[in-house]
Amino acid sequence: MVRPLPSPELKVREAASTVTVPGGRFVIPWPKKGQGAVMVAGGGTVGTFGAEKPVPTASVAKIMTAYVVLREHPLAKGEKGPRITIDAKTVTDGTAEDESRVEGLQEGQSFSELDMLRMLMIPSGNNIARMLARWDTKSKDETAFVRKMNDAAKALGMRNTTYTDPSGLDRGTVSTAVDQLKLADAVMKSEAFRSVVSMVGADIPGAGHIDNNNAPLLTAGLGVEGIKTGSNTPAGGTLSWAARATVDGKERLVLGTMMDQHVTGPDPNGSNSLALVLENSRKVVAAVRKGLTTATVVRKGQVVGHVDDGFGGRTPVVAAKDLTVVGLPGQRVRVTFRDGGRALARTAERGTVVGELIATPGPGSAAGKVPVVVKSALKEPSFGTRITRIG
């Protein structure tokens, strides 16, 4: 009777699962209080501080409002989109005190979707946020749109985020810095969105000139390209930002969020806390852009494991390419293996892919991945080997 041959087994080395980015230890100049996070777009988180607990977002919530609007009504390059007619509620909301709004609008005026997004994101019009919510859902209130916001947050993996309104004025709209990075990474893929939030100001026909609350960072010479400030009494100062940085000759998009920044003393509607979060973020942007570097955590051809044929024979598996990440000196990067559901065959050509290595510097998306291949061909056991299985 011939016993069945054992199945080959792939074993990946665990000893080298964590690698440190060389260059000493880099310290991000975080403030003493609040929370924040920084990531390289498409490359995972490079630093966080503070407890990851939900706090009021203030007008940073409008990033999600814009994200949902552009998802439902995308704008191609150079396109302004449909006309949106101002309703009576938007005019009335424009006279409200103690909240940001676009004043002087008239019922029946119409603006392009692009100009509405500008009035939403640049001067942070709460009345524009509500108007867009009603327009998108063809509703008399914002309830259905808020539901879309929460559905979008869930789809993006924003586990600690809850939206209760489209403007962020309501203190029940809460999130974390880490969650807001997930949103920033997604929304900055929209060219229309990027074109809006990078503006220091804009002239809107029928509404006049509007200025960006984020102008101090946009004009600081730090490569900042938006994205949104927020401030009120419950939230203090909040900010999500995006900046370009050149790392080893390649341009990268760096994203950051800082929340729960509060001054000591008078702070009408969070105005002084807004100045605080802008200054604290400026320090972080400047330091991170200067400190970012690349590190090769696995080299091409490096043996990362082996295939055991069950008879004592071992065939090395190697990285098919260098696995390089962007990070800060001293940052620890975890390298993991994933087979992607591939079944390991008994025979395979040299260079056959058996899985991939994934580098993850922190919470968020992976920083990079490379295929793992067999270094030499996998072959059927010889006749002599087979005969030893007869019993």
Rank of each mutant, 00 (worst) to 15 (best):
E103D: 12
K154W: 03
V288I: 11
S17V: 04
P381S: 04
V19T: 12
H73F: 14
D165T: 07
V374K: 01
N126S: 11
G355Q: 05
S190Q: 10
F193D: 09
L120C: 03
G172H: 12
Q331H: 08
K189G: 05
A215R: 15
S382A: 13
M258G: 00
P56E: 07
G157L: 04
A177K: 09
D203Q: 13
F337D: 03
R334W: 00
G172I: 06
G43C: 11
A16T: 08
D87K: 01
G364P: 03
T246W: 05
A144G: 08
T336K: 12
K11P: 02
R171C: 02
V46S: 02
A295E: 02
P6F: 00
K375Q: 13
F49A: 11
N127K: 06
A155N: 09
A287T: 07
T173G: 04
G104I: 00
D87R: 05
V326H: 00
T95K: 07
A319T: 11
F49M: 13
W30C: 10
F145V: 03
A220P: 12
S175D: 09
R134T: 15
G44S: 12
G384M: 12
E52R: 12
D87W: 06
I390K: 08
D93N: 13
A243Y: 10
V285P: 03
L222D: 00
T219C: 04
V69C: 06
V303S: 02
S376D: 10
D339A: 10
I387K: 10
F311K: 06
G24T: 02
K138P: 02
M121A: 07
A88F: 01
S231K: 14
A242D: 00
V196T: 13
T296H: 03
G23N: 07
K182R: 15
G201S: 15
V326N: 01
M158A: 05
K11R: 13
